[in-house]
Computed example of a mutant assay.
Amino acid sequence: MGEATNRVLKYNPEIEISQARRIVDLRNWIIHGYDSVDNVIIWGILSRDIPELKKQIEVLLNDY
Rank of each mutant, 00 (worst) to 15 (best):
V40Y: 04
G44R: 11
N6E: 13
E14C: 02
S47M: 09
Y34P: 00
I50G: 05
D63Y: 06
V8E: 07
V24R: 00
I42W: 04
I41M: 15
I42L: 09
V8A: 10
Y34Q: 03
P13L: 08
L60G: 03
L53T: 02
I57Y: 06
L9M: 14
L61E: 12
R22I: 09
E52F: 01
N62P: 02
R27M: 14
Y34H: 13
I23V: 11
R7Y: 00
L53E: 01
N39E: 14
R22N: 12
K10H: 09
Y64M: 13
Y34C: 05
I42K: 07
E3M: 08
R27S: 06
I30F: 04
D63C: 08
K54L: 04
R22W: 14
Y11D: 15
K54C: 00
T5F: 00
S36C: 09
G33E: 08
E58Y: 03
I30Y: 06
Y34M: 07
N62L: 15
L60I: 15
I45P: 00
R7I: 10
K55E: 01
I57S: 00
I15S: 03
N39A: 12
D38S: 09
E52I: 09
V37P: 05
D25Y: 13
L26F: 03
N6G: 14
I42A: 06
P51R: 07
L26N: 11
H32D: 08
P51T: 10
D35A: 12
Y64L: 12
W43N: 04
D35N: 12
K54T: 11
I57P: 00
N62I: 12
E52L: 01
I45W: 04
G33Q: 10
E58F: 11
H32K: 01
E3V: 14
V37N: 15
R7T: 13
